[in-house]
Design a protein around this nucleic acid. Structure first.
Lengths: 196, 196
DNA sequence: TCCAACATGTAAGGAGTTACATGATTTC
DNA sequence: GAAATCATGTAACTCCTTACATGTTGGA
């Protein structure tokens, strides 16, 4: 590899690109970003302050962001960041590039199911039932999110894309619920067989 | 918190517990574990050598594992680890405890969809089509895994649990495919609207 | 003759979370 | 009077992956 190539390639982490994306919605402070995440990309992405503040600093140094300071009375100053032209290009370039993060999703529940014979079927059942309850709550949440989005962003051109991400959540939750149903039935059979 | 409590609480990482689980199948070396993972828990869990070897060392020091050395001719010695009684108890305790790892699964594709208005719908379509192709390959894989498991482990009491984990994979893949279909249709509409 | 497989291990680095530090204002 | 909110930032730590280091045997 030639000199400089490596520095160019992964100049930003995916966390930083996610922040670029959020700042394309409107200029925001680190605090704003943190608050916004649960209401926007929170179902498939998370960021902590320990990640956000250093990222904003780095991207400002790289001229991807502009920083403006708003004086706060009593409160600390607000540092409001907005995309520069170069930041917007960086964002578009990433959006066009193939999806890269293909690391295996670690699923502790499936791990416990896989080693299920080490404990009684009833113990595995508990985990599956917990998942079912959580999935049912999530399903109810989705309905609320869709209703809220359709009202609050009726004329927003971003609405169709936002609904697509919620829709993935819906399909995933339905898949989980279907799996729970089947798995609980299979556990019934295993428990029956154990008694005899 | 009193002295010692912290040390007790999280004595093992989930990675280490996963290795305990695999060693409950049969005694193995670090190399064996690494080879086995893609054929067993690979669809929902991954481990690298850099994680495996230090983990085996730590758990041996904590008397959860026994280590036996097999002399290799030419090759390095094989260090074969097996569960101690205390290791098996540790494993069972973890299997009975509630599932803990509930960190948000980070999904770069959904991030790109969420910020979709920043690029042309055609750019988003590319990502969705890639996902569809990958999901279709995965679906074909599942059929093969089920056939193989049912043959090779016909009388293995662990078979039902192993099939449950594959089944989750099937449901998830079907959810992805359904989402891709719907999303591609919606993108059709957005592209049409753009042309007019 | 070269490459893959066998086999163990360490070091460095990336990515991210949690806890800490600070302090005024508003709300119950 | 306590707690939550606003607001920024750093340090320490965890967890994990990749690259490096080493060396033999067997097959194409």
């Amino acid at each position: 590899m030639k000199a400089g190539e490596k520095a160019e390639k992964g100049r930003l982490t995916t966390s930083e690109r996610a922040l670029l994306g959020l700042l394309s919605l409107r200029p925001m402070s680190g605090y704003d970003l943190r608050q916004l995440i649960p209401q926007s990309i929170g179902h498939f992405w998370s960021e902590s302050y320990g990640q956000i503040y250093p990222s904003l600093k780095r991207m400002t140094a790289e001229k991807l962001l502009d920083k403006k300071t708003e004086r706060g009375k009593g409160r600390p100053d607000r540092h409001v960041y907005s995309l520069t032209e170069s930041g917007r290009e960086e964002l578009r370039g990433w959006l066009r590039a193939p999806v890269e993060l293909r690391n295996v999703a670690r699923n502790e529940l499936l791990l416990k199911v896989f080693f299920g014979t080490q404990v009684a079927p009833e113990e595995v059942r508990k985990h599956v039932e917990t998942l079912r309850e959580e999935a049912e709550l999530e399903r109810a949440e989705h309905a609320g999110i869709v209703r809220h989005l359709k009202k609050s962003s009726a004329n927003n051109p971003q609405l169709p894309y936002w609904l697509m991400t919620v829709n993935m959540g819906r399909h995933e939750v339905n898949a989980k619920l279907a799996w729970c149903r089947e798995t609980l039935q299979e556990l019934d059979r295993l428990e029956e067989r154990n008694k005899q």
